[in-house]
C-alpha cells in the first residue's frame, strides 16, 4: 500500500446546527481509484464539499499529501492539486464551452492536460467550443465538467455522481473514457449510486450511511450482502 495521498481522520461536517458527517475515517492511496457509495442523503456530497474546501472542517481532519487542508478555502485547496466534477455538473451558464474549460486552468498548474488534450478526449467539445455551455446535451455538459476539472492538472480528482440524469449509452461512453483520464498516476474518488459501476472501476470501496462509514472493503472481494446491509442499514 503506497502512502495515502488523502487521509481523513475523525472528519465531522455541519450545516449550521445540523451535523452531516460523524467522525469519518478514510484514505485514498496514491494512484488509487476509490469508490464511495451510499443512499440519498448519506453524506457523500457533503464529504466531497469538505474535501474541496467548500465546507470548512476542523484542524487535522483532512490531510492531502501530508498537508492539513481542513481549514483552507476552496481556491487554496484547488491550488494544491485537487479538483472536482460536481454533482449536477454545475457549468458556468454565461460562459461558452471553451471558456468553461479555460477557467479550469485558472490555478496555472502544469501537467498533461490542456485545451488540446481535452478536445482530443472529447472531440465533440472542439466542434461546440464557441456555444454557451447551456446549449449542450446533458452528456456533453458532463464532458465539459470533466474537462474543466482536468484542466487544473489535479493529482486527485473527485467525481460526484457523474451518471446522474444521463442516458445509459452516455453513461457507458463516460465510463469508457475514465481509464484514459485516471490512467497516468492520478488518484480518483468516484461517488456513484450505481453500485456495480462503482465497484467495476475502483480498487476499494467505502459505504456511507447517515454520515458514518458503514463499510470498507476491496471492490472485487467485498460480499454483496455486506454492501446491502451497509447501504440500507438492514440487519
Amino acid at each position: 500500500m503506497p502512502e495515502p495521498i488523502l487521509q481523513m481522520t475523525g472528519l465531522n461536517a455541519h450545516y449550521g446546527d445540523f451535523q452531516a458527517l460523524y467522525g469519518v475515517d478514510m484514505h485514498v492511496g496514491g494512484g488509487e481509484v476509490l469508490a464511495i457509495i451510499g443512499a440519498n442523503g448519506a453524506g457523500k456530497t457533503t464529504l466531497m464539499r469538505s474535501i474541496t474546501g467548500l465546507i470548512t472542517n476542523g484542524p487535522g481532519q483532512i490531510q492531502f499529501k501530508g498537508r492539513d487542508i481542513g481549514g483552507l478555502r476552496g481556491d487554496q485547496v484547488a491550488e494544491t492539486g485537487l479538483a472536482m466534477v460536481p454533482e449536477g455538473r454545475q457549468l458556468f451558464a454565461s460562459l461558452t464551452v471553451e471558456e468553461n474549460l479555460l477557467i479550469g486552468a485558472q490555478t496555472g498548474r502544469k501537467g498533461p492536460w490542456s485545451l488540446g488534450a481535452v478536445f482530443k478526449l472529447f472531440p465533440i467539445l472542439k466542434e461546440r467550443r464557441a456555444v454557451p455551455s447551456t446549449a449542450l446535451s446533458g452528456g456533453q455538459q458532463q464532458m465539459v465538467a470533466i474537462g474543466r476539472a482536468l484542466m487544473s492538472n489535479p493529482e486527485l480528482i473527485l467525481f460526484d455522481e457523474i451518471s446522474l440524469g444521463l442516458a445509459p449509452i452516455i453513461i457507458k461512453d463516460i465510463y469508457d473514457a475514465l481509464p484514459g483520464i485516471i490512467g497516468d498516476g492520478m488518484s480518483a474518488i468516484i461517488v456513484e449510486q450505481d453500485i456495480s459501476k462503482a465497484l467495476s472501476v475502483s480498487s476499494r470501496v467505502y459505504c456511507l450511511q447517515e454520515g458514518r462509514v458503514s463499510l470498507e472493503g476491496a471492490s472485487d472481494t467485498v460480499p454483496r450482502e455486506d454492501i446491502s446491509r451497509a447501504y440500507f442499514g438492514i440487519e
Binding site: 478555502r73 481556491d75 484547488a78 472536482m84 477557467i103 490555478t107
Partner: peptide, 9 residues
Amino acid sequence: DIAQLMGLN
C-alpha cells in the same frame, strides 16, 4: 462555490 473550486478567490 464552483468558481472557488477553479482556484478563484
